[in-house]
Design a protein around this nucleic acid. Structure first.
Lengths: 218, 218
DNA sequence: TATTCTATCAAATGATTGTTAGAAACGGCC
DNA sequence: GGCCGTTTCTAACAATCATTTGATAGAATA
């Protein structure tokens, strides 16, 4: 079994430079497993993905995975959290880059860009989350709930400030709007092909539909 | 194994009323299995659902299911097709009820109503389809493709006629619009609770966002 | 050089899976 | 009542799964 805490603290006491290669090896392999697993989970689903497939894609035997993770559940649990975290960070980063005095509508726009970019770019963690979350056993879902709540809370705040500032129609139910917005973004993983058009262009089209609707301006 | 054709034709030659109960029994049990399976597939996914769970929910033993279906794959394959068929029929029914001279925008509106209604009301078949399709092995998906193509073809025609009639902005890519529209409708299965608000009300909100956008009218 | 730690492997375990086969129950019909 | 087709059950099957175990190779340490 693994004792990361005791090992890492022991390491810190000793020379840090000598151990660097060996210490980083575990992180690299962990990452390889997570990458391989998230791809497989997204494409075939959690239940249909075997540990042998994960291990194979990560270049090792099935039993070796258990040196880095205590179970298959632990892998998917970490992927669920990473998926939200990456996209949340990317969205926050873009919103905060606008500065504190930015227009609420502009903040909403870059949030959409960030979510879509984090969802469709190289990282398949959020895609794996979206496609598997609803079908996972409840105890696995529960552990992901706090992060999910924090993320939708961030969106709710963005939408509320936009509505207060008059950038969103006052008659719209914000909860439905949030679900509709994130939902239509999330759904793009079901059909978006990276070779057909850039993410930026897709994001522009979706923002256009979302803000102005499909009816011609009257 | 099962020989529905020969048995049914033989039956038709005999007295039809006496055999009615026995003849309808198979259909009833088949239906019970399909209903139970589609619920389980929607909630836990195809791979995580066992035949014993399906049989249990249908009130029988696992082995008995094989009298009605030749395999687990055959069950999910039939559910995939039924899901599209039910919603397609409902959408067509509502559109055609408007009559041939109806406004393209009105036709689009009832199509949205129909899709959402078929998706969220009693039938869990389309929900099971939506949630499982992307993760099923390719040979299973292939058999569902013709129906899917027919359905999106119907939507493409609705959208094209609406755009030609000026009910949809000319600058919108119709393929992205179709994917966006059906996608945002499909996503509602991930969050809609039947007890919170009616489907009609939800449909109205979504149509409002979709047609007029979230920005205030300028 | 001897020892310890890191990371992996090969092989086995028990549980669960979809599926099959043969026996039993059920009901209608002569 | 006895027969026959229909439907279900019971009990098994082989395959596959996640997980465990003990051994092992290599690098770091002393």
């Amino acid at each position: 079994m693994r004792e990361p805490e005791s090992r890492k603290t022991a390491k810190a006491v000793q020379e840090p430079n000598k151990r660097r290669k060996a210490a980083s090896q575990e992180h690299v392999t962990r990452r390889k497993i997570l990458d391989a697993a998230s791809d497989l989970f997204r494409d075939k689903g959690y239940a249909s993905t075997t540990l042998r497939q994960i291990a194979d894609a990560a270049g090792m035997q099935a039993g070796s995975v258990y040196y880095h993770f205590e179970s298959k559940d632990a892998i998917v649990s970490e992927i669920l959290d990473l998926g939200i975290t990456y996209v949340f960070d990317e969205v926050k980063r873009r919103v905060e880059k606008l500065g504190p005095g930015a227009e609420p509508k502009a903040r909403l726009e870059v949030a959409i860009d960030g979510h879509l970019s984090g969802l469709l770019s190289h990282e398949s963690f959020l895609s794996a989350n979206i496609r598997n979350y609803g079908q996972l056993p409840e105890d696995l879902r529960k552990k992901n709930v706090p992060l999910r709540r924090a993320y939708v809370g961030y969106w709710d705040a963005l939408l509320l400030e936009a509505q207060k500032a008059g950038a969103i129609r006052a008659d719209l139910d914000l909860k439905i709007l949030r679900l509709f917005t994130i939902g239509s973004l999330n759904w793009t993983v079901e059909w978006h092909k990276p070779d057909k058009g850039s993410i930026e262009e897709l994001s522009m089209q979706i923002k256009s539909i979302l803000f102005d609707g499909i009816s011609p301006v009257g």
